[in-house]
Computed example of a mutant assay.
Amino acid sequence: MQHALRTGRWICITTLLGAVAHAAWAAPGTCDGSSDPCSFDLGRVMVTLAQGAASYAAGAEFLNGEDGDYVFQPNLFSTLALTSAGATEGFSFVPGLQLRVGGSGRNGYHELRGWFEFSGLSFQAKPGWRLDGLQLQVIGSRNVVGDASWSYGLPFALQFNGDSFAGSGAINPDDAAVRAELTINAAYLEGEDGTAVSYGYATAGFESARFVATVSAVPEPGAVALWLGGAALLGAWGRRARPGRAGG
């Protein structure tokens, strides 16, 4: 009995040590801001950018008019931060995208679009781990006044709390190509007496975003064989220890 218990404990300890060893393993990151393929280590998951820094892009443009302004962060690595909590790990970044149209009294219809996007982005679990899912999460805000409106383009719906919004959705880890857009528009029309017949003003922006991978441990074949062997030993010991049936 004591031998079987010692065997069972040894199998559990061996499995746990194997998991810890994989969690501690870290390949050096190769992302240096160039356009060459690169990867970086989240801990239990490796992230690959097929075109390096060029796998990420951000921008903004006027679709109509010119009354407005915008800012955005074109560099992924300047704001990238690794995140880890329990069974999840990933990276966050700040798109820095802020859009504004209207408010200056220029006649016409003014429309502005901004975005960030990834191409050639993939996530792969390290040996001993399984990637159970990947999500993109975004946080931002918008404000619309008068003859103005806004819209968004994301592969999932947003939830709102006043002018603030947040949303998340599943992304394919093998090809995490995604584009996130915001579009705002506003109209201004001045009447003959110099007052505004139509007036609009709108702002919108992405304040933060992050990819979150959910992982779980997968025992290696050797650990599974040890576990099965231990279970077989316990079963055999149980059969030998069971008292025999008395004859009639």
Rank of each mutant, 00 (worst) to 15 (best):
H22M: 13
P37W: 01
A26Q: 05
G247A: 15
Y152Q: 08
N172S: 14
G29Y: 03
A87Q: 13
A125V: 12
A23C: 12
Y199S: 10
F77I: 04
G205A: 14
V197T: 14
S39E: 09
H22P: 07
S55Q: 02
R179Q: 01
R100P: 04
G153W: 05
G33A: 01
A87I: 12
F123P: 00
P173N: 07
A166E: 11
A87N: 13
E117F: 01
V20W: 11
C31V: 01
W150P: 05
S151I: 03
G8W: 11
G167F: 05
E190H: 06
G8D: 12
P74T: 03
V101G: 05
T30D: 02
E190W: 06
T83F: 06
G153A: 09
W115L: 01
P37Q: 02
R44I: 08
A27F: 06
F211S: 02
A60R: 03
G128R: 11
A60Q: 06
A176H: 02
R210Q: 14
F123M: 02
C38M: 02
N64G: 13
T203M: 12
F91G: 02
L158A: 12
R106P: 04
L234F: 08
W150S: 07
F77L: 06
S34Y: 06
L182W: 03
T214Y: 07
E117P: 00
R239H: 15
L154D: 04
F118A: 01
F160K: 03
G222F: 14
F156Q: 04
G230R: 12
F40V: 08
A148D: 08
Y188L: 10
Y188C: 08
G33D: 02
A27Y: 11
Y188W: 08
R100S: 12
A24E: 10
Q73A: 09
G102N: 07
G86R: 10
A148G: 10
D36A: 06
V45A: 04
A148K: 07
L154Y: 04
S216M: 10
S141C: 07
G105R: 08
Q51P: 04
A213N: 07
T214G: 02
G235W: 15
F123G: 00
L136T: 01
D174N: 14
F156H: 03
A246M: 15
A58D: 01
R210A: 05
R130Y: 09
A157P: 01
Y152A: 09
G162A: 03
V178C: 01
V224P: 11
A125P: 07
R239N: 14
Q2I: 11
V224Y: 10
V138K: 00
G244Y: 09
V218W: 15
N64I: 12
G162Q: 08
Q135R: 15
A246D: 15
G248E: 14
A148E: 09
F62K: 09
C38Y: 00
L80C: 03
P155E: 10
F160L: 08
A213G: 05
I139H: 10
Y56D: 00
G90V: 02
Q137C: 09
A26F: 07
Q2H: 14
K126L: 04
G114M: 02
T203N: 10
R245Y: 15
F118S: 00
